[in-house]
Amino acid sequence: MTAIKEFFSNAILRFGMRRRSKRALTLVLLLLPVAGITALLIVIYGTILIFNNVTPSDLSESGTLVFIIIAGIHIGFSMLTALGAAAGEITGEKQRQTMDLLVCSQMSPSKIILGKLTSSCSFILLISCAMLPLYSGLALLGGVTVQMLIATYVSVILFSFFTASVAIFFSTVTKKTAAAEILAFLIIVAVFAIWLILALICELINEFMIEYMSRRTFILAQFSNIPLFIQADPGCFLYMIFRLAVTGFEDTYNYHGFHETFVTLIMTPLQLILISVLCVLGAIKNINPQKSPKNKS
């Protein structure tokens, strides 16, 4: 409990929150009418559908679809926000020449980075709260469950934390925010792409094996529904967690089986968390003048 309290008394975190809260408030004020209008449209849309003898199950299906589209936008937007905010955290300090003042204060490098990281994600928290009315508006259509809401928020937290960690790492490496943003963006895209590329290579090998040896490669044999390697892709995690939320555990498990379900649901987040932790540790080391390799000669 004291640890949590101490964490939230982090000077940089509180400072960043205070700075952002002004901007965030305007955004929330902007989002509220948007949410209201969306909710109204959904009600009108729903009413029309009902008067056209559409069954509730059709309606709830479209509700689910709209929810997933909006959730996708929410996740993507959170990632971009995290990227932009975190990439500028340390480069901004360097440009304002305030970095040294922080480093030689009594905040340890890890406190500085964790404060910065949380502060850059605080904006997302506010956006996510602002999204709640929109989601509840959608619930009027039906087809929206608490599980789906949980899936959305788990993904937002996981993916924004991942993006912010990568971005803050590059923020400690480069001098310019734009450079940090681009590098972080490339790395994030690479994490998504690498598994797809591996899967593609695997498929090509497979084709080759079928063509010339008339059998599949041994590793591919046991996975039928999703090509190998795509399971470890962060994108596949999104698919799996939403499928789980929409169709339930049993259906998912029966269709995908033990390997696919668990590799995706456990290994993918672990992979993202591992990269995030490495990035955060790297960033902490980079801003520590007593450890930074830049200062050695």
Partner: peptide, 25 residues
């Protein structure tokens, strides 16, 4: 330490400036 440059965040009063660094220290 007083460095040979003056680093500061935008839009901040002297009081807020000192208060922030009091926090970090």
């Amino acid at each position: 330490f007083v460095p040979d440059y003056f680093g500061v965040y935008a839009a901040m009063s002297s009081e807020e400036y000192l208060d922030f660094y009091a926090d970090t220290n």
